[in-house]
Amino acid sequence: SPVALPPFFMRGSIIQLADGELKRVEDLKTEDFIQSAEISSELKIDSSTVERIDSGQSPNAVVIQFSVGELKAQVCVEVLVEYPFFVFGQGWSSCCPDRTTQLFELSCAKLCVGDVCVSLTLRGMR
């Protein structure tokens, strides 16, 4: 059965940065995420390194294991193969870039083990 895709990854989607600036999703840069998180009182950017990519429960899904932050917390997420992550210094990347381009018209690189993705954590966690 078809899974609803997040609408904001569609090429041309308008994204509001923390300072109010509007950009298209395909024009976002690493600095946009870093600067938005710096302004945010609640959110903090973490570096999440792809450790493993395995098949998921369904043919269109993958399980990605990340090593998150300085503590290298191991976190697994199951996503559709076309789900894009933002890789530091590289931009949008997914496990199946052809499918991401087909569905979202969003140019993507291939997400690989060792890639470092932008992720978020809460500030002030103790």
Partner: peptide, 19 residues
């Protein structure tokens, strides 16, 4: 035209102990 917040594009993966 809908406008989406920047943080909806980034996965929320894990809380950290620091900060």
């Amino acid at each position: 035209v809908p406008v989406f917040p920047w943080h909806s594009l980034v996965p929320f993966l894990a809380p950290t102990q620091s900060d």
